[in-house]
Design a protein around this nucleic acid. Structure first.
Lengths: 344, 344
DNA sequence: ATGGTCGCTGAAACCGGTTTCTGTTAACCG
DNA sequence: CGGTTAACAGAAACCGGTTTCAGCGACCAT
């Protein structure tokens, strides 16, 4: 009931002690006699006093908060990312500020504004300009997630080109497929760009001509459905396989293909990337590449927190977490009762 | 290059003016002569000074931040929610703090901690205890989104039971279906609870016995796939229709059904709720209920911001936004070249 | 010439905490 | 009993801004 807008000084007056003593009691620091502690605790209890965050942060010289900047797309990938980051920040008593840059032209300014409200920032690759990134890194520790920053800004990402090349080689060599198409827009994000490169590399390695153009669409399930329409509608020659930049788009293509009466993988092979929860259990199970999304974000948070704890230091290095092939039925591999055969 | 950790007093000394003048210049308030303004701007420019957020917030008595508490599930629904909220907060120069309570038992404490760092909070229905909600509402304006709070805490939600009843009546009466099953856990969230109630109400209205138990699973696509397995696997009698608590689960059921060789809607009718982007374009297009998710969150943000602007006031009332049936092919309605026939 | 108003500036108070530093008191020791 | 030290309390400074208030010179009207 009591307005919880009490201040240290009010409590001090009510308890008949100095503000220093109130502060010591509420933080458990320093030496306080039992009698004083009692008096203060009583007043605190009675009026429901909790120290305000702003004063504390100002005195401590840190905000107790971390920032996360992402483009603002839907789907499991970003929710996983947010949660991985958040779950690592919370135990360190840091709150998480988010900023969706999606479709806003003034996002560079907003990122810099965020830089004055937090102790460190994780930026998803490809969401803001390199210039803004460098300016941001001048004020707080910065880590780029799923991408690479300019200069010596630290980054954390998954191994993309290698595993995508391995997956593509698997389709070309082990399943003897040809006329693969790539669904995804390499311009859209560093991740997709690396995956497109891996896709082409595998063709090159095997002396097979890769397609010149990807089917440049977004990363959402709806985009995959559109891709299926473009690829399977009309009377275009049907591709031998559809290699998607991520699982969500792949699930869209899958729904589109099944809805058209095609059998997967007999009539059409489809693969994804990410290994979202749904991938393992759809019918047919989706062949994909497992990527430690949550761990990626958590690692970014750890890097930032470490830099925050050692003032003056900057996160360093570029960490690449391993990925893993998950070969399931949608590429023609035999169904596996477990999560699907895997291969590095 | 210059360390952007300049303070007002440093700039004041460098420019040979008082801190008051620096503050006036950097905020554009009060009267400052051209000469002074010039001197100050020069020093500001030269050292890349920007006023820090903490001092400003402390002086202003507000944090310039809003909180958003959600359970931490994946999928388009929550991303939409986050973005709707964020896009309304940013123009008011308020940053957004997030807190995922998912699977953490100490979330009540963390919500209260958040209450000391922001000017107002939006809480997704069913994520924290009523007790914590009431305590939170004592310190900052609070709005419950997609649910109903205890006491007179304001809430914003979509019309659930009415439209779910209308959808169910449509299946029972217009398509003459029987043996419908409901997929979703009414205990899991207020939304699902209301939808389950609407589902049963429609049966009651038409004098048809509703099923006693829902298929109590989660709200993710993977859960829908599991539900399909449970409903369509083995040799259980096949249900006449599957009414899902949301679109993501419905898409899971759809994938599961198609993967088993069933035709939708001929062999099985499936409906969803939410009208996520993918719903309109899968094949067959998903019959569902359109819900203004983004708008819901935006309205919550507006309510909070209004209360923040009028100190001492509390958000009031319980706003219910209208929903709209989207009848498409998955229930047996004729395919519509547009987004699907709609009916209030 | 005098009193009043306007325009501008800076010293100081304030926001709500933490922390240092000084001082008092009591206990302990030789 | 005198001297050293440990335990504890409080005044004041500090964190980085904004804002009030008083003062000062210039200008205007009486």
């Amino acid at each position: 009931m009591s307005n919880s807008r009490m201040t240290v000084r009010e409590i001090a007056k009510l308890a008949g002690v100095s503000v220093a003593t109130v502060s010591r009691v509420s933080n458990g620091t320093g030496q306080v006699s039992d009698e004083m502690r009692c008096r203060v605790l009583e007043a605190i209890e009675k009026h429901g006093y909790r120290p305000g965050h702003l004063g504390r942060a100002l005195a401590a010289g840190r905000h107790g908060a971390l920032g996360l900047v992402f483009p603002g797309l839907s789907g499991p990938y970003f929710t996983e990312l947010i949660q991985g980051f958040e779950s690592e920040a919370v135990p360190s008593r840091a709150s998480v500020h988010i900023l969706c840059t999606h479709l806003r032209s003034d996002s560079d300014d907003q990122v810099l504004e965020m830089g004055r409200r937090v102790d460190g920032v994780a930026v998803i690759g490809g969401t803001i300009s390199d210039d803004a990134l460098l300016r941001l890194a001048e004020m707080v520790p910065v880590v780029v997630v799923a991408g690479e920053g300019p200069g010596d800004i630290a980054s954390v990402r998954a191994e993309n080109p290698g595993s995508m090349a391995a997956l593509t080689r698997h389709l070309l060599a082990d399943h003897d497929l040809r006329d693969l198409v790539f669904v995804g827009n390499p311009e859209g994000s560093p991740d997709v760009s690396e995956r497109w490169a891996g896709f082409r590399q595998a063709h090159h390695d095997l002396g097979i001509a890769p397609p010149n153009e990807p089917v440049a669409i977004g990363l959402q399930q709806a985009d995959g459905v559109l891709a299926a329409e473009r690829l399977l509608g009309g009377d275009n020659p049907r591709p031998g396989g559809v290699v998607c930049a991520n699982d969500e788009a792949a699930l869209g293509v899958l729904v589109g293909a099944l809805g058209r009466g095609l059998r997967v993988p007999q009539d059409l092979v489809i693969t994804g990337f990410d290994d979202v929860p749904a991938a393992a259990i759809v019918t047919p199970a989706l062949t994909t590449v497992r990527q430690p999304v949550r761990e990626l974000a958590a690692e970014a948070a750890r890097l930032i927190l470490r830099a925050v704890d050692q003032p003056g230091s900057t996160p360093e290095g570029s960490l690449v977490l391993p990925t893993e092939l998950a070969l399931r039925s949608s590429c023609g591999c035999p169904a596996n009762p477990l999560t699907g055969g895997t291969r590095k």
